[in-house]
Nucleic acid binder design. Sequence first.
DNA 1: ATCACCGGTGGGAGCGCTCCCACGGTACCT
DNA 2: AGGTACCGTGGGAGCGCTCCCACCGGTGAT
Lengths: 351, 351
Amino acid sequence: MASHGARGRSGGRPTLEEVAARAGVGRGTVSRVINGSPRVSDATRAAVEAAVAELGYVPNTAARALAANRTDAIALVVPEPETRFFAEPYFSDMLKGVGAELSETEMQLLLIFAGSDRERQRLAQYLAAHRVDGVLLVSVHADDPLPDLLAQLEIPAVISGPRSAAETLTSVDSDNYGGARSAVEHLLSRGRTRIAHITGRLDVYGAQRRVDGYREALLDAGHEVDEHLIQPGDFTEEGGRRAMKELLARRPDVDAVFAGSDVMAAGARQVLREEGRVIPDDVALVGYDDSAIARHMDPPLTSVRQPIEEMGRAMIDLLLAEIADRRPATSRGLERRQAVLATELVTRASS
Amino acid sequence: MASHGARGRSGGRPTLEEVAARAGVGRGTVSRVINGSPRVSDATRAAVEAAVAELGYVPNTAARALAANRTDAIALVVPEPETRFFAEPYFSDMLKGVGAELSETEMQLLLIFAGSDRERQRLAQYLAAHRVDGVLLVSVHADDPLPDLLAQLEIPAVISGPRSAAETLTSVDSDNYGGARSAVEHLLSRGRTRIAHITGRLDVYGAQRRVDGYREALLDAGHEVDEHLIQPGDFTEEGGRRAMKELLARRPDVDAVFAGSDVMAAGARQVLREEGRVIPDDVALVGYDDSAIARHMDPPLTSVRQPIEEMGRAMIDLLLAEIADRRPATSRGLERRQAVLATELVTRASS
DNA sequence: ATCACCGGTGGGAGCGCTCCCACGGTACCT
DNA sequence: AGGTACCGTGGGAGCGCTCCCACCGGTGAT
């Protein structure tokens, strides 16, 4: 009977069975109480809860996962650390939201890095093994095979920053279009008329939407859009520098710049200063992201704040809903879920 | 026989049993191959590996965890988001190191937030249930009960930023003493003689060590330490402002400031500028952390860089070693493990 | 030849849980 | 009174794995 180290290999945490014995009920009943089933009488439930408390019972996740074929875990897939996602404050803010929302539940958060090929391989295996109930995807490139893999495996997933207007996955996004509009409208209201735009990488859908917002804000205000004032950047500081130099060369009379990120705005500011342009007197500058850089820039940078923490919360909400449905959005038919959250323009001395 | 939905409830991922059948061997043998046991003949191993590849077998973590009483998971416990830990670039850099080192192993990373009381309660339960094989602790307050809890539960743990010189947990730290010395020596070499220090919160051990480094660098250079030049801060920008005002009031002739963090340096810079002091001509300024703020400050801030990514890697290494030993450092006797990594002074225009 | 031994192997038992079937009891119908 | 329904409950079976014991055949020692 005591053949095989049966008795608690390490300290003996109480099991369902022991709780059942203590409460004078069967195993099934305890399980029902633990899982909040309604099919338990109040008296029994009270007795079980007392036993649970006395014994300090905590369910064994592994056993539960094995028996129920679920994991109570979701994965946050972090793409290459090089991407702007991993930069402040995006990452930590989103995590804050995710963590806050998750702490209301029993779910646990797994962080999975998918930078190297090796890591992506592991991730694919991981997902194939259905070791998580759902996946959070952030800043995925348009050509990334991951979303399709998830759809194929029927793993619930939510993506932040849809890859296109036709995104099939459930998505959460901030209102890039509206954010860009608010920036441009602000500059117009300050009397600027030759407003340039340094864009983000245009294979990023959000960057495209910002360009759309830029264009339409100008058109709606009765201005023409001068294509020479739109200069592609790549979200980097150096890209911002290059773009600003190009703009100055083509349109020396530019009187405002709306940059698609604070980092690019920082690059642009360097060039403007080198060229002797005073901010905001000669050229007004507006960034995007409202990062620490914006607050500490000289002069402090007007920037579009995205509700990133809210986005994290929204992602969890949508994901949990999808897990509850137990099937990914694609097989639910057409009812694509998505959330678009409003941005806010934070006005500072640079404009 | 087919009483109870036995056949793959969801897609039928292959099991050990199926791999065994395919390879014409027993379950135990496949398990041995999967786990790299040496007690398998080469021929058998090859056959099993072929079967694994053909079937695309991936072990079921839950079953493994249940049977073997281990989880192959470690937790990174994130304290209150308010702390400086959660600020850039500390968090993401450390995560980068942790992720890189972890991707060499089969371990998975759990992120656990322990900000609110509620969350800490969950964490305690979590740990009591032994749902992770080890724990990574970051920026823990001196009076935090968590380390003791971990020791009591005999859960391997590594702390970044030891709580004191007598830290009992295995720890990883950067050389705060040496970093501070390098900052002060740099200022001395620039001919500064009235060097002030704005400290971090002195209940943080690392902040104390920086003060030690500051003092001894001065003493070793044959200078006296003027206690009026040491002003306590709290790692915040506002704290930096207050400290700088105080210093200026007490010692208007100060010609250099070594701040215990970049953020405090930013606060100090504001005050210096308001008072008409030119950086670095009138007052040289050096920060600590080499964050984005330092690079983008005006003028760019000389700062002490900590090898945070390396620290992340070191934490994982130490933790894995400890898990392999299957017992926490405390019960291994006196051989406390710790790693202290060197810092680097990044010189910029502010000094 | 006999025995102990050892590398290599198969498979039973068990990890702690969920799922589901079966069962006793009460309430309500005919 | 007998039948039917349903509620609350107990407990068997099974999730996929690891651990360990038993077993098999081949060696080398006796």
